[in-house]
Design a protein around this nucleic acid. Structure first.
Lengths: 142, 142
DNA sequence: AGCCAGTTGCAAATGCTTCTCATTTGCATT
DNA sequence: AATGCAAATGAGAAGCATTTGCAACTGGCT
């Protein structure tokens, strides 16, 4: 929260450097993204962004997310039968554990798994470009 | 191929036991699925099924696939920005490597990764229910 | 053979996402 | 500060894969 202003300015800089204009609407969306601790979808981002700038349209949210994705500052996730969800791409690579009861998303990282994946691809004669690993879980009851 | 007739009869038995009628259309779809060596999507299945029974509609393909999925004889996969693809659920569990140039799907299995996934979930206080692991790769050139 | 809930084909509806287009706006240049 | 213009915008239409409503059929048990 305290740092989100800096973070937003940093993101705006990345956009400008990439030749992408920083409009009022985009600034609002960036702020929301920088503050988000969860993995909101487009319409949730729209809902939140409208509180900063009521003129933001859903089209613009989608267009901005695509632009941000291309600039590499946002990542799009398509979890099981759900709409696309987004997060800023500042954190190092990680995979996701999804609570199938609440939809909550927990990030994790396993270097061992990362390495095994590359090995498997290599064995099959391929170079690993990217991967998707999602664990659908239920909170342990006991 | 030689065994697909038996396989189809087996699948039909599963359906009947599950209280699901085996109609002309469903028999055609089952045959196609049993013969498929790839991971076709709904419209490809439709195309193939129509060669056996021209009356099969795309709606029925979708409805049948849902029924089969519920009976546990078919698995649905939603790979990156693509339509859902299906395969019979007879083979033991495996994950998928997708050739990002051709869309080809290769199955693989790593007990080590399976085990690591369960460990990660446990560490985070969860029970792993199911998971999705997809490797998006490019064929090694050299 | 006859019944009747389960199935079907068709078309219309969905829901997310992208696109079209007329209008506005950022911002580099005067 | 005013100008020019490509980029961006809002609103709504369009796309696309998938689902659904409905009237007409049909498995499969009696």
């Amino acid at each position: 929260m305290k740092q989100s202003k800096n973070r937003v300015e940093e993101l705006e800089g990345i956009l400008r450097d990439g030749g992408v204009r920083v409009t009022r609407q985009r600034a609002a969306i960036l702020k929301i993204l920088a503050e988000a601790e969860d993995h909101p979808d487009a319409s949730e981002l729209h809902r939140r962004a409208k509180e900063i700038d009521a003129t933001v349209s859903l089209s613009t949210v989608y267009r901005t997310l695509s632009a941000l994705e291309q600039q590499g500052v946002v990542q799009r996730h398509a979890f099981e039968n759900a709409t696309a969800r987004f997060e800023t791409a500042d954190a190092p690579h990680h995979d996701h554990l999804i609570d199938i009861e609440t939809g909550a998303v927990i990030e994790f990282r396993s270097d061992k798994i990362e390495q095994l994946q590359a090995e498997i691809a290599a064995e099959l004669g391929y170079d690993l470009v990217r991967h998707r690993l999602e664990l659908y879980c239920r909170k342990r009851k006991d």
